[in-house]
Amino acid sequence: MKNKADILIIDDDRDLVNSMKIILESRALNVRTAGDGKAGYESIRNKTPDLIILDVMMATDTEGFDLAYKLRRESVYQDIPILMVTSFPKHMAEQGPEKFQHIMGENWPVTQFLEKPIDPDDLLSAVMNLLSEADGHDPGFF
């Protein structure tokens, strides 16, 4: 049997993190959490997760993006799928650098976007899709 998928949630909203943790753990996924970008990066260095769920705005406006760019630049971590969750309307976040261009200017670093509030079914479907796209992980869902 393959290992359970390891998911790292990086978000400074404890309530939201708890909700997501409950939802993901209900499908027997292994969930780790971090409250900011720095703690998240440390957690990734300790153990490379199969998927990262990342918030955009934490201590700074671009903390989520900063971490995503940093990971994309490091060959060890650049293939980890990143599901970005944000309270910005999805259409705005998806337009990416165009809307955020005055604070960023490089290529878009995230795999998929999910707009808050999180719907449990949408979250699970996005997570499962991303995990099944990545090789060798048993989502532990079926």
């Binding site: 909700s19 209900s26 509030p117 719907d119």
Partner: peptide, 19 residues
């Protein structure tokens, strides 16, 4: 919107029987 989203996410988790 952030706190509202958190509340909504928690309510949905509760309503959809995850707890």
């Amino acid at each position: 919107r952030a706190p509202l989203n958190a509340v909504q996410s928690m309510l949905r988790t509760l309503r959809k029987g995850y707890l």
